[in-house]
Simulated assay, not measured.
Amino acid sequence: MKDLKISGLNLDIAWLDKDQNFKNIEDSLRETSADILILPEMFATGFYMNPDKIADRNEETLHWMKKFAQEKNAVVTGSASICEDEKFLNRFYFVEPNGNYYFYDKRHLFSYSGEDKKYTAGNDKVIVNYKGWRILLQVCYDLRFPVYARNNGNYDAILYVANWPKSRIDAWQTLLKARAIENQAYVFGLNRIGIDGNRLEYPESSFCFFADGTDVSKTDNNIVSATFEVERLQEFRTKFPFLSDRDKFTLM
């Protein structure tokens, strides 16, 4: 287990244009070096509720992510609309440089936008082990459900990818910080920026919080970076062993 450098791209997503978004990401991250690169929720298209029009049917986004991960020698993460077995899923991919990948299908679908009418909810909680770090994968609206993200001593960090608009941005920042504190984990929340095809505005609002609630992220030219520090996290959990006093309920 070693320290991990994480970088996320505050991406102004080109509405419904996969090729343009792939190009914009490659250009934006050309000089960025990190262990893990994070992209927003539905980074290839924007958060669009007509999946029949945008969903990958031949793993187009995954193929691009594999290629980009190999080129950057880094994990590439982010979610995409996909069609599988005649169902639409909001799938968060975690793609390693060697081509191996994991995925998490968004559990909590955003009924306010009608996502629950168009997409199918995932059933599996996914924790990826990468270079000794145990990382929980989550998508946007999942953030509002702390029981689902409860740390049972089985993860060290959470990655959230989102399209979280300006009108509710205080909740986004507050809940990210709360998830870090209550779970004694690093929490990296990567949001998009700009204005989408529905005229919703997204301000720069990506953060990485340490387990005590401290914002440890830095932003430069739309790149948000932080380092997951092994010793710092271990020392904090040893000094304040709050997780050992957690309620012993289970979920799923």
Rank of each mutant, 00 (worst) to 15 (best):
G132E: 10
K67S: 06
K23G: 02
H63L: 10
K117A: 13
V216L: 10
F88P: 01
Y141H: 04
K72L: 09
V161L: 04
S225Q: 11
N129R: 13
R232I: 00
F94W: 03
K125S: 11
E204L: 02
S111E: 12
D247Q: 14
L159K: 03
I6D: 05
R30Q: 13
E229P: 12
K117R: 12
L137W: 02
A171K: 08
E229T: 06
N191Y: 00
G78M: 01
Y102C: 12
V126Y: 06
Y148L: 11
A185P: 12
D170T: 10
E71P: 07
L176H: 00
E26W: 05
D27Q: 15
R107T: 04
W64M: 02
N129F: 07
F207H: 11
G122P: 13
W15C: 05
L39R: 06
R107C: 01
V224T: 10
N73W: 05
F94K: 06
F240M: 15
R107P: 02
F103T: 05
E204D: 05
V230A: 04
I36F: 07
D12T: 13
A34Q: 11
M252A: 10
L200F: 14
V147R: 15
D212C: 05
E59N: 12
D215A: 04
K67I: 03
V128A: 00
F236V: 09
A226C: 15
V187M: 10
P97A: 07
E235W: 01
Q70F: 08
G114N: 07
Q173A: 07
G132S: 09
Y104P: 00
A180H: 04
G114T: 14
L39C: 02
E26C: 08
S113F: 12
A121F: 01
Y119T: 01
K53S: 09
P40N: 00
I36Q: 14
F236W: 14
L4K: 12
A157F: 09
Y104H: 06
V95W: 09
M49E: 08
R134P: 13
S225L: 06
N73A: 14
